[in-house]
Amino acid sequence: MSDKFLSISGLKKHFGNNRVLDGIDLEIERASITTIIGKSGIGKSVLLKCIANLVLADEGKIQLDGRPIIQSRKTARQPGGVCFSYMFQNNALFDSMTISENISMPLLETTSMSTHELHDEVEGMLGRLELGDVSSSYPAELSGGMRKRVALGRALITKPQIVLFDEPTTGLDPERKFSVLEMIANYRKQFGFTALLVSHDIPEVFEISDRVAWLDQGTLRFIGKPEELELSADLELSRFLDMANYGRNKTE
């Protein structure tokens, strides 16, 4: 058994005349972290949303844990009974609820956990995210980085089997950025979830990634280990990496 947890084949999606995804093939092993890099607006988020059943793909198959994801708008039932989480680029926190209500929401609504257990879980998560002091504030009162961490907490509290992160580290200071990435890595070790990241923080994110995929012009033009990335013969890819590194060096 090859243990492919998520496999995508021939995924296509277009908006009007713009072919955003034009035949994506990707296989992700269980408990691995895969990062998708690429220019802004190239369709990375669309790819994640197709997997999360938020965007209806035109063509192609997505299999999660050996079972196909039924793409339909009809239902919110999670595909194949697999518990998955999605961390949105803009966090998508419930802004009329407090931080602790936000984090406890998925557990409250989908599990039959007792109030006591729930409280413990949420407190533990708030502690690990260093959000203990602000548990009764509202999302609008927090800084961008804190909101990002709340979204992370909400995504991880259900102990999902697969998590889709849409730019989890954008807008964080270098220290927090590192701690968020570390947290993802630690949680992976602890709970063994499979992660799919979309990120722009190019050198840092490679530290925790098992594999990197480069999305360009609707296809994944490179899939491989982070070390192999530098050795790739693709000119455009090396130019993209150079630009990313250059920008980074300049700001630092």
């Binding site: 059943n53 239902t75 919110a76 989480s85 999605y86 926190l93 998925p106």
Partner: peptide
């Protein structure tokens, strides 16, 4: 506003039907 802020999508990914909720 919840639709625009992707909160409805967030509910959907948590396995909570947004219409029902």
């Amino acid at each position: 506003i919840q639709r625009n802020d992707e909160q409805i999508d967030a509910l959907q990914t948590m396995g909570i039907d947004a219409r029902g909720y």
